[in-house]
Design a protein around this nucleic acid. Structure first.
Lengths: 356, 356
DNA sequence: CGATTTTTGGCAAACGTTTGCTATAAATCG
DNA sequence: CGATTTATAGCAAACGTTTGCCAAAAATCG
């Protein structure tokens, strides 16, 4: 009883491999091999060691292992500045999906946030160059570069998620932004809509280029001119989606020929736009159909329920981790074509044929 | 030029302290001291070393340092299962606030998600017992415990955020759930409301206990009986807020004496409840005032704009990190009274005096 | 200017685990 | 049963950094 008390106290204070070795009556290296390379140790010896390790609650010291092996067991995720937007659950979904997959692969997830300042860039470069992380998943088009150190040249395996960065040499997992928006625009055209209002993200931003490109493709395929669509926005980033939507409602009010359908490139824009438009006396979808992008859960409870393109975040997260773990196992991986996982259009009451 | 090319190539491949020492013409230990204990090294020598380190783009290996010093520079955040809810931005806000503060203190943030399974509990315990992390911020009432290892007995400094876990010996940073709900209930009473409908989180959950307690306190202070409030919910967790709200709308329909004010304990519940109630023909706030908890940004764009109690997440995150860093500098810190940071009521159009 | 005190650089060992290599034991072959 | 092959345990060194200690140089004191 007293003896158990002593052992229990020892358990709680971080037993070393040396302690396991002593208890099992073998060398430290044999313990290491029994745990990491069981085929190299006799079954009887292994049983002794496993019992001792369990009794002591032995937990390997990852820093020691990482130092000796020369490889960390940490992956960093490089996030794009603000982690929170209006209603979007994309970042939490990304984190949850990636974390879960990494743990299954034996890795840990560390947060590296890429603000627009040197401190955050340096933080990321320290992690990369100091050997603290083994790879990265990046959700930003910018690769940190400060004081002659650049992430691109660090040799760290990197996978881009949400943005196609194949041109920059990164393997990428994306959704079919262009195609999804093209298809929903085609659906609006099929319903009879001929004039569109596009709520834009930042000009030149990957997502905006793809999504607006989808609109233009659908117009062309239907024999409509690019003049059929009016743009609002283009200056603010997606994290200011509510503001973009409010400004868009203003812009809409000033249009002579009113569009009958709105294509918002994020749920936030659509939600605030709809709120303002309804206050101005218009009715959705009677006067104006609205569709948006992201697939935030709250769209179902909007007034009226909002049609939206839902991004396959969980699946993309899993695919990004798979790509990264593959890259960790190989020396050099030229970026192949991006892995594309399709978004899904959820049609709800915000979309209807135009009145006239 | 060619010489610069060689040095540049060497820069990109992770220079060691030994390389800096060689270039500066000093011992490795002198480099270590110059960088970490500058007062111990002559200024002239220090300048040579700093120049060499800069030229080589030297980045310290944190695993080596952690192993030698016996202390990691990583803090884990223990999150409560699902990272995403309906409209809540609490988790991303928590992560952003804590990450920023930790980096300023020289620490890195690692994600540890506490699902309801052994895998995630074991993951957390491995991090704690293996020396991989130096401390933890926890957003869950449950402390991991598997195979004779428990987080509570690991000796790891832990700070609880959002939940008061002082009784379990953890320093805690919380908001004034009870008081905030009491005050908003008092405001509804002041407006003339006498019958209330409370949309509850999981029975016995810390937040629900506090928030419902606040309602009861306000009723008592106004001389109203506890019968003045009807509860809906109590079985589902907050991450199922939309479902709770939908069910509550059903429950509401079955009430003989209709309450005139709804106190929802999360924005999600309020949003879905309002959506369903409006479909049933009722009008907000004409027939029913609604107030909720969390302060999600989208409440401003709801129909009508939703009154909500906004949690001070950023400030709580900073306070949690401060408490934790303090705890890291001291050996034993009995939990004092929790740090309480006040929430803020944002009154919008969803609240008005009752009709009769 | 010699004695004493302070500053400074470097050696060597530490941290906890892994792995190449060798010696010995065990298994297999002829 | 001796010769050969295979399996296994253990020694020792490695990983990159830090820090105690000591010797020598520099600074200060009387």
């Amino acid at each position: 009883m007293n003896k158990n008390r002593d052992v229990a106290a020892e358990e709680q204070s971080g037993a070393l491999m040396a302690d396991v070795a002593r208890l099992a009556g073998v060398a430290i290296s044999t313990v290491s091999r029994a745990l990491a390379n069981p085929g190299r140790v006799n079954e009887k010896t292994r049983a002794k060691i496993n019992a001792a390790a369990k009794q002591l609650g032995y937990t390997p010291n990852a820093m020691a292992r990482g130092l000796r092996v020369g490889k960390s067991n940490i992956i960093m995720i490089i996030l794009p500045g603000s982690l929170y937007y209006g209603v979007s659950q994309i970042i939490p979904q990304v984190l949850q999906s990636i974390n879960k997959s990494l743990i299954q692969g034996g890795y840990n997830l560390m947060i590296a946030n890429l603000d627009r300042d040197e401190i955050s860039e340096r933080h990321i470069l320290d992690l990369a160059f100091g050997g603290s992380v083994r790879g990265a998943i990046i959700l930003s088009s910018k690769l940190p570069e400060v004081d002659g150190r650049s992430l691109a040249s660090s040799g760290l395996p990197i996978v881009s998620m949400l943005l196609d960065m194949s041109d920059a040499g990164l393997q990428s997992v994306v959704t079919n932004d262009r195609e999804a928006v093209r298809d929903v625009t085609a659906e609006l055209i099929r319903l009879g809509h001929r004039r569109f209002f596009y709520l834009a993200g930042p000009e030149g931003n990957y997502h905006d280029v793809e999504r607006y490109g989808g609109v233009l493709e659908a117009l062309e395929a239907a024999g409509l001119s690019a003049e059929s669509v009016r743009r609002s926005g283009g200056r603010l980033d997606y994290q200011h989606g509510f503001d973009i939507g409010v400004q868009a409602a203003d812009d809409f009010a000033g249009l002579d020929e009113k569009p009958t359908a709105v294509i918002a490139t994020s749920d936030d824009m659509a939600i605030s736009f709809v709120s303002c438009i309804k206050r101005a006396g218009l009715s959705i979808p009677d006067d104006l159909s609205v569709v948006s992008f992201d697939g935030s859960p709250v769209c179902e409870f909007s007034s009226p329920p909002l049609s939206t393109i839902e991004q396959p975040v969980e699946e993309m997260g899993r695919a990004a981790v798979d790509l990264l773990l593959d890259a960790l196992g190989q020396s050099q991986n030229p970026a192949s074509a991006p892995t594309v996982i399709r978004s899904r259009l959820i049609l709800r009451e915000s979309v209807a044929p135009p009145k006239s």
